Amino acid sequence: MELNGKLADAFNDQITLELQASTVYRQLAIEMDVLSLPGIAGWFRAQAAEELEHAEKFATHMTDRGAHPTIGDITAPALSVSSVSAAFEASLGHEKKVSESIRDLYRLAHNEGDIDSVPLLNWFIEEQVEEEATVGGILDRVKMINNDGNGLLRLDGELSAR
């Protein structure tokens, strides 16, 4: 089944959102580099790369179904964080935005009767549950640390293993 109309437009919007998410994560990596936390910065860089893969999954799905993927205007929010907690709060907020967008795509696919998109969207729904849980768990740990230097350095070391 060819992908077109409202759903193709929504997939293009999602591609742009995934690329925007990558940019957000790149900026958060820079912010952690500024705070001399290379492990956390590396974790954010890995997240940025993963968001690029997500955009590619949508683009591939579209081309496989005869649609033309396009990238819209990418506007990353201005981010300047002064703490690890603020960085992960920004991360979680953006993941929630992406999750809701995926759920909207799922609803639209069902409304349009496009069952061919459902397997892809199911994968993304599961991925977003995992992403929010991961970021939320890290944020909980950051809050427990409460800017304790030893705790931050330990977390930095743990996240560098990603």
Rank of each mutant, 00 (worst) to 15 (best):
S91K: 06
K96Q: 13
S82V: 10
L92M: 15
F58G: 01
H61N: 04
S91H: 02
L92E: 14
P69E: 04
E53V: 04
V84M: 07
S85H: 12
E100L: 14
A86W: 13
K96D: 05
G93M: 08
P77L: 09
P77K: 15
A87W: 15
A90Y: 07
S99K: 09
L79H: 11
S82K: 15
A48L: 02
S101Y: 08
A78W: 11
D73H: 10
E50W: 07
E100F: 14
I74Q: 12
A59R: 00
A87M: 01
L52W: 10
A46H: 15
S80Q: 15
Q47G: 05
L52M: 11
A49S: 14
A49F: 10
I74C: 12
K97C: 04
I102K: 15
H94T: 03
L92H: 09
A59P: 00
H68N: 12
G66Q: 01
V81G: 00
T70N: 05
H68C: 03
I74M: 15
D73T: 12
D64V: 00
H94I: 05
G72M: 05
M62S: 00
E95G: 11
Q47E: 05
A46D: 15
I71Q: 11
L92A: 08
S83F: 09
S91L: 03
V84E: 08
V98A: 04
E50S: 08
L92D: 13
I74G: 07
E56T: 14
Q47A: 02
